[in-house]
């Protein structure tokens, strides 16, 4: 009798313990399922993306323009490219929003300060909210960074200064380098962990003395800012630009590069012909992204050019140390 009671007690205890283990396990699994697994940004392979067939490129009459102030294009699920409406500012500057786990980085803030004209913060917040919903993320920190220190790339910087959960990198050379932990500009090449997404960052002066190039190992995009794009490459320091463009080539030798992406389009589709400075309608503009062949031509130019002047190539014009107002416009 006592033995039976003992056995019954053992069984009850065992069932009780098993019940608790199973309950916790079910709760744990359910809770884990609620929190999505961390996003993965592997360096092997390539996260593909799409560029639009045509960017919104202004209009004949700026007054009649009905396009949004900022064109938002999702290159892929974690990479957004934004373009300022050329009818608002002829620069038509591109801006980039890279996402990692729990963090987003906005590179550049366009050429217009007014939030009424150019509501960049509102648009970025919308993108972040949508991305959070889509990827089950929350409390994404925003880093507001810059490719270089020219006003047409940080005019709307002020819209973010009082934004919660935001890191403002700053608009001085020292603040920029401190953020990226670059102690030896421009030679040093650093890697930056954007929430599990590895960015390779290095100094590329020539157009401006604080410029950076960023290689995204997940998408294989090489971002070259204002120092290499389809347009007038205004160079204030030729020797620095020579070193920078050669360094971009060495980065492309070391890492697989899918596209070179940048900040402006000023060329037409006609080789060697640019739109006049200040153009607010570019119906015949080429794609923004560039190829390694174009980079090779730029590297070749560093051997050919020996003096200040304007040098015309099919996909870009080199304005070597000449005043900004000098143009090839008819």
């Amino acid at each position: 009798m006592k033995n039976n009671l003992g056995k019954e007690r053992h069984a009850k205890n065992a069932v009780g313990i098993l019940f608790v283990v199973c309950s916790i396990a079910i709760f744990d699994v359910a809770y884990s399922a609620r929190n999505s697994p961390p996003l993965s940004f592997p360096l092997t392979g390539r996260a593909s993306g799409q560029f639009p067939s045509n960017w919104i490129h202004g209009s004949k009459s700026a007054m009649d323009n009905t396009d949004p102030a900022i064109q938002v294009h999702a290159y892929n699920e974690h990479t957004y490219i934004l373009r300022e409406n050329k009818a608002i500012n002829y620069e038509g500057a591109f801006m980039y929003l890279f996402f990692g786990n729990g963090v987003a980085m906005l590179i550049d803030q366009g050429s217009t300060s007014s939030p009424a004209l150019f509501p960049l913060r509102e648009v970025v917040d919308q993108i972040i909210r949508g991305w959070e919903e889509q990827h089950n993320q929350a409390n994404t920190e925003l880093i507001v960074a810059n490719s270089h220190l020219h006003g047409d790339h940080y005019a709307a910087w002020n819209q973010f200064v009082d934004r919660p959960n935001t890191v403002m990198v700053g608009l001085t050379h020292e603040e920029m380098m401190a953020f990226w932990k670059i102690e030896n500009y421009p030679q040093q090449i650093v890697t930056y962990d954007l929430g599990g997404r590895e960015l390779v960052v290095t100094g590329t002066p020539g157009h401006q003395g604080s410029e950076l190039a960023i290689y995204d190992g997940w998408t294989d995009l090489l971002y070259t800012g204002d120092m290499f794009y389809r347009g007038r490459l205004y160079l204030e320091d030729w020797d620095a630009w020579v070193s920078s463009i050669r360094k971009l080539r060495s980065i492309a030798d070391r890492y697989p590069v899918a596209h070179l992406v940048n900040n402006h389009i000023e060329m037409t589709r006609q080789p060697g012909v640019d739109y006049p400075i200040g153009t607010t309608w570019q119906p015949n503009e080429p794609p923004m992204q560039m190829t390694l062949d174009m980079l090779d031509i730029a590297v070749g130019a560093t051997n050919d050019i020996g003096s200040p002047g304007i040098y015309i190539y099919d996909d870009f014009l080199i304005y070597n140390q000449i005043p900004w107002y000098t143009t090839t416009d008819p």
């Binding site: 300060s113 005019a155 603040e175």
Partner: peptide, 19 residues
């Protein structure tokens, strides 16, 4: 741009027409 003896880094701000 503001440089101050107590701060190792400068501090930057942007002033605009509306701010």
């Amino acid at each position: 741009r503001m440089d101050h003896a107590s701060s190792p880094l400068p501090i930057s701000r942007l002033l605009t027409e509306s701010e």
